[in-house]
Amino acid sequence: MTGPTEPAPDRPAVVGRGRLGRWRDQAVALGWLVVVWSLLWGDITWANLVGGLLVGGAVLVFFPLPAVSFGGRLRPRALLVFAGRFAVELVSASLHIARIAVQPGYRPRGAIIAVRLRVPTDLILALTAEAVSLVPGTLILEVDRDAGTLYLHVLDTHGPADLDVARDRTLVVEQRIVRAVGSTAEVRRVETTSPQKGTRP
């Protein structure tokens, strides 16, 4: 990666967290696993709860997950904004792709662009990649975790202007995710950096 590299964001959430936070993460994961188990069985009984606890515990012990730093807290309103925009973009992008798929004799052009995220922590990177991959005519090809850069394939471009549009759209998705789950410092970083500056690698 050439060009000015921003210093990698410090990740204090993992280091200074200690055993208590680790236990809390495990408990939250166990809770979700029990919920999934109950949904699979279809109803909530004591047998299902105990069975879910046993199976979930076994999964956590035998297949441990890497620690994900969750520094921020959930903001319900921002989360709703994100979910709403996500649904709208999912529908419009799907209709767009469906339209160019059935349009006779149309050969869509594509491009591969690099988008450097402003908050390249693991959580934000993964969530943005998931959301972007599901939403507009974009597809994640490669993730550079060290540089916090996503490489996207954009479908149906008509020139360099469309590339910038796609790049800005990705950064807006990142902004909504940071507003929903990011820490206060991350939100400040996203709000102060304008999408046009410092995003091209």
């Binding site: 792709i97 798929a101 059935v102 599901l134 005519g137 597809l139 394939h153 479908l155």
Partner: peptide
């Protein structure tokens, strides 16, 4: 529409677009 796209689009990457997006919403 996703099926048409998978059959018609010229290269593997564009086919991926057809296969993932309208497919998920479908």
């Amino acid at each position: 529409a996703a099926g048409v796209g998978v059959l018609r689009f010229p290269d593997a990457l564009s086919r991926m677009h057809a296969a993932t997006k309208p497919q998920v919403l479908g």
